Computed example of a mutant assay.
Amino acid sequence: MPPKKKTKKTKPEKSDNDLEAKYRRSILDIAILQDRIASQCESVIKAQSDRTDLRRCIRDMDQKLQHERQDHRDVNSDLSRQYKTMKTELTNKVKRLEKEVSQLNEELALCQEELRKEKREREQMEQEKDATIVDLQHKLDNMETDYVKVLHDTLDSLTTQLSVVRQGREDESTTLHQKYKGLLSEFGLNAVDI
């Protein structure tokens, strides 16, 4: 008789494993929640500290603003006084500058005439330079054409010489082949078998 098969009870062990897995998951969830609470507590403490700092900063800014307003009033009165002085000085300066502008306009007219003359000379030089460049480019193109022609002629000559040499080598090879074939047949050997 064959031995009896033992039946295993897997269901209770499986449910124990499920409970243990759920327990571990619960412990992890609790740890995660505790970390979040600690992080939020730190955020609240930091926010309260920041709020205190901001209030102190606002108080300091208010004091600075008051000082700035007083300084602004002082500067404003000083600027009004300076404005009157400067206005007088500027009026005198404007009259002097108008005379200088008149003189500079005359000098500008002379300079513009010289500039036109220089432009005409430069344009003439550029035209001459362009003509020289065109001439040189033409010569360069002609030289290039000549070199290409010489190169093609040389290559054609080399190709012809190579063909002659190759034909000679092929004839020589055929002669040697026939010679050795004849020698092999004298010894009673077939060249195809070797």
Rank of each mutant, 00 (worst) to 15 (best):
108 L>N: 08
135 D>P: 05
124 Q>S: 06
29 D>T: 15
72 H>F: 04
16 D>N: 09
30 I>E: 12
173 S>V: 12
170 E>F: 05
149 K>Q: 04
22 K>N: 07
172 E>F: 13
7 T>V: 13
16 D>I: 10
31 A>L: 15
35 D>L: 11
40 Q>Y: 13
55 R>L: 04
34 Q>P: 04
155 L>N: 06
150 V>C: 11
186 E>P: 14
15 S>Q: 14
27 I>Q: 14
192 V>C: 10
85 T>C: 07
53 D>E: 14
181 K>Y: 09
156 D>L: 02
168 G>P: 09
25 R>K: 11
101 V>N: 02
47 A>F: 08
5 K>G: 02
50 D>S: 00
137 Q>N: 09
176 L>S: 07
137 Q>S: 06
171 D>Q: 13
132 T>E: 06
92 N>T: 10
159 T>Y: 08
186 E>K: 15
60 D>M: 00
174 T>F: 08
178 Q>A: 11
8 K>F: 07
73 R>M: 06
112 Q>N: 02
156 D>W: 03
14 K>T: 07
80 S>G: 14
159 T>M: 06
139 K>E: 00
161 Q>C: 02
184 L>P: 03
68 E>C: 04
135 D>A: 09
108 L>T: 11
137 Q>D: 10
123 E>G: 00
42 E>V: 09
90 L>N: 04
119 K>G: 00
21 A>H: 13
11 K>W: 08
127 Q>V: 02
124 Q>M: 04
100 E>S: 04
88 T>P: 03
146 D>N: 11
99 K>D: 05
23 Y>P: 09
111 C>R: 15
4 K>P: 02
115 L>K: 07
56 R>Q: 11
36 R>V: 08
168 G>A: 10
28 L>F: 11
5 K>L: 08
93 K>A: 03
183 L>W: 12
174 T>G: 06
20 E>G: 06
188 G>T: 02
95 K>H: 05
145 T>V: 10
86 M>Y: 14
7 T>R: 14
30 I>Q: 15
24 R>L: 08
74 D>E: 04
124 Q>E: 06
30 I>D: 09
190 N>V: 07
97 L>E: 00
188 G>F: 00
134 V>Y: 05
148 V>C: 11
2 P>W: 00
137 Q>M: 05
50 D>L: 00
166 R>D: 06
137 Q>P: 03
53 D>C: 08
105 N>T: 07
64 K>W: 04
46 K>W: 11
173 S>E: 12
26 S>E: 13
31 A>T: 13
13 E>P: 11
7 T>C: 07
53 D>S: 13
43 S>R: 12
14 K>S: 05
43 S>I: 10
24 R>I: 09
52 T>L: 05
180 Y>I: 10
131 A>S: 09
49 S>G: 09
99 K>P: 01
100 E>V: 01
10 T>C: 08
188 G>I: 03
23 Y>H: 15
140 L>C: 04
109 A>D: 06
5 K>D: 08
150 V>D: 12
141 D>F: 04
119 K>S: 01
156 D>V: 03
72 H>W: 01
69 R>Q: 07
93 K>Y: 03
6 K>F: 08
119 K>R: 09
19 L>D: 14
157 S>P: 05
88 T>S: 07
85 T>I: 11
156 D>M: 01
91 T>E: 14
20 E>T: 13
140 L>T: 10
149 K>P: 01
181 K>C: 12
147 Y>R: 15
168 G>F: 10
22 K>R: 14
